[in-house]
Amino acid sequence: MDEYGDIDDAAFAAVADAAEKAHKSSSTSRAPAPPAPAAGSSKQPVVQPIPRKIAKPAGPSSIIVNTRQKGNPLLPYIKSVPWEYGDIVPDYLVTPTTCVLFLSLKYHRLHPEYIYTRMKAVGRAYTLRILLLLVDTDQHSDPIKELTKSTMINNMTIILAWSSSEAGRYVELYKVMENTPATMIKERQKEDHMSRVEDFVTSVKGVNKTDAMGLISMFGSVRAAVNAPEEQIALIPGWGEKKTRRWCTAVRDDFRMGGAVMKKRREEAAAKGQSTAGLGTAVPLNLMKDEDRVAINRRLGIAAPAKEVKEPVDVDMIIDLDEEEALRAMEDEERRRKKPQEPQSEHVADTSVNTPATTEDGVLAALAKLRKQ
């Protein structure tokens, strides 16, 4: 230490080394010792990071537009996706496998050979080839028929647009839906039985889900609802005359067979010598059993028609009644004859007096005997 009380450099270095050694000894006692390095190597191996794969897009992120489409009025309406000019054969390259050819009907009337040259240049280079047709003239019927035939021959899809904004929207949607799966627009099949029954019933025009539930709860099964008569269908709450008639017509109408199919069947039957009268007639539905119909009638509160009880008829009794009526007629006739008449002669008078009395006694005796039997 000097005269001013300051420590010299050598002493300060010795104190610093002693403190550092004390610190290292304390930390070594608390932490485990690191592994000894391998012989012949003084440095530890460096661990390299694993490279991460980045998913590359299937195609360009923007729509490629042919330079000849500069000034096309549909370009300002492509707003959702970017687009850029490029050296391509079609007018618009939406995806790597989808291309679009644009055509205006006014331009087609002036240059009818233009579109056929473009179709030939595109060829079969793309999976989906689209002809986007802008209908900007009133006389469009014949050109559309002609172009539709040409697209069918060249295996292309034709899309009609009536404005530039609509045409731009079509081009834009093909790019937006590039990676969209087809299951998004596919109808989802319902798994539960009741939902399928509802879909079947509501397929009839004018029948909604509420009507379907009423039909199902009333009859309990599709078979019972199909075979039910129109009077029972009309008793469902909310089912009017028109809806009932539509349902009955839909479930009872015959299937229509194609003319060519039926003609072929008739020719085959005629060749075999069979009758063709029954061809084309509908097969009747499997009707319900009597016990099922009675059960449905009870559920609907419809009383079954009363059956007439037929009593045994005695044939002998019928014959006796006929005989009794005949005897009564004879009795009435004799009573009329019994009325007093003017005698024409003595012999006639005696006969008219004696004979009716004898006949009347016989009739009365026969009636008394018949009643006793």
Rank of each mutant, 00 (worst) to 15 (best):
K209R: 15
E20K: 15
E333W: 11
M288F: 02
K79V: 15
D142Q: 11
I296R: 06
G220V: 05
V81K: 11
I153Q: 15
Q48T: 14
R124V: 08
R109Y: 15
A303Y: 07
Q44C: 03
E198Y: 09
D17A: 14
G86R: 01
R299L: 08
M156C: 11
K272F: 00
P82K: 01
K339N: 09
P82E: 08
K186A: 10
G220K: 01
L367Y: 05
K79F: 02
K43N: 03
V122Y: 00
L173H: 08
M213E: 12
S25E: 15
E334C: 10
T244H: 00
D142W: 12
R188C: 07
M213H: 11
L134E: 03
D192N: 06
I144V: 15
T137Q: 13
G258I: 00
P143A: 05
L132W: 01
A14E: 11
Y126W: 03
E230W: 06
S26Q: 11
G278F: 13
K149H: 11
T202G: 05
L173W: 05
L327V: 04
Y174W: 07
P356V: 03
L133M: 08
D136Q: 04
T355Q: 13
R298H: 12
W247V: 01
A13D: 14
K209M: 09
E268C: 05
P112N: 06
M330L: 11
N66P: 09
T28Q: 06
L75R: 01
A125Q: 13
H140M: 13
S221C: 08
S104K: 08
P32I: 06
A31S: 11
L235D: 02
V197K: 10
D350R: 13
P57I: 04
E324P: 02
E84I: 01
F102A: 06
Y116L: 11
T351R: 12
K106W: 03
V207D: 06
M257F: 11
N66R: 05
M184F: 15
T202H: 02
